[in-house]
Design a protein around this nucleic acid. Structure first.
Lengths: 197, 197
DNA sequence: CGGGGAATTCCACAAGAGGGGAGTTAGGAT
DNA sequence: ATCCTAACTCCCCTCTTGTGGAATTCCCCG
């Protein structure tokens, strides 16, 4: 068997409907989630998508725009939390806790929020995006009630810390807690933050 | 006045006791705190210390060793928390909250913990260091009581989330809260996590 | 008053980053 | 059937990174 002729990938457009653009977005999201904004190189993303790095530039321009379309624009997420928070006040704590953990665990949303957090801690532009994304949502959901916004923010901060410990850093005791028990322990506290009761 | 001869810095050892090593450690800590492990380049650290990059290698070997000596080794910190947590049970929540916030705000400890968190979210080796540092301390402080360890971990996670929101990401409502009020709101919750009451 | 080792400089290197441009092929509108 | 545009690959450039080594100067111990 003669050695396969090492032929390079053909140049030019591909026939049919190649879902290349989406492949890039998926790979980008996955790598941003895993390594953060700076750690995910365009080349690595292109490789993961099975695509030439030049294509990224072709489709999205620069890295920040890619991040925005892959991560930020899919963030229809914050209002979901605010909705949970303003639901039936007697169960808001549990609802928000469930919604939040679901966000981190969902196969679609998990990468988004991991990418956001991993990037926001290191890259100022990612942090800015996150602020600009979350701030207005809270403002909308509270109708400008700053006291309520404060309560929601504290509840969300608690959940953020737990998620960091459980899903990002991997702090033993928090990882080992079964999910049910975790919810049972968090829900009353979140409820307390939200309603003050 | 003739143009100053542009003379390059002299090579060779400097006279007197140059605190170069410490200058490097200080600069390294500051930059790790500001940009995280990957974001802080050895060259930038050297520049901030007013020193040739080669010196870092001379003193510390490689980057990980520098991080370890600048950040990790100064972490006499965790046991401080554990101590607060196991103090007088009626005030443990407030004590731990104060101790934790003090950690983030202290001019000496703040950079350490910021560096740790910023790095641990992105760099796996930093995350490992953090785990290896915190895990045993909790184990020691609890004497192997895993239920207690779980309670402390949940309390610490809450505080971690608040600190992330307030000092790292900069979430509006959490930043705007006056410190006193923040403590007043957090302390009872931390107390609840710790004691179950 | 030597001499060895530590502190310090500069230079070099290979690898990888993001970005840009030129050229090739296919799809779709006319 | 023709042409414009979009998809696609390859090559290049410049910058930065971590690391390594050679050369110089000074301190300190004998």
């Amino acid at each position: 068997m003669p050695a396969p002729p090492e032929r390079p990938r053909p140049t030019g457009r591909r026939p049919g409907d190649s879902g290349t653009r989406d492949a890039i977005l998926d790979a980008a999201l996955a790598l941003f989630a895993e390594r953060g904004y700076d750690g995910a190189s365009l080349r690595a993303i292109a490789a993961a998508a099975g695509v030439d790095p030049g294509l990224i530039r072709h489709f999205f321009g620069d890295k920040e725009a890619l991040f925005a379309t892959a991560v930020a624009d899919r963030m229809q997420v914050a209002h979901l939390l605010a909705r949970a928070a303003s639901a039936d006040p007697t169960t808001a704590g549990r609802a928000m806790t469930e919604a939040y953990l679901g966000l981190w665990e969902g196969p679609d949303t998990g990468p988004i929020v991991r990418a956001l957090v991993r990037s926001a801690t290191t890259s100022e532009s990612a942090a800015r995006m996150m602020r600009e994304m979350i701030g207005p949502r809270i403002h909308d959901a509270t109708g400008g009630d700053t006291a309520l916004a404060g309560r929601i923010a504290l509840a969300a901060s608690n959940l953020l810390g737990v998620a960091m410990a459980r899903y990002v850093i991997g702090v033993g005791p928090v990882v080992d807690l079964p999910r049910d028990e975790l919810v049972d322990r968090l829900a009353p506290v979140v409820q307390h933050y939200l309603t003050g009761a």
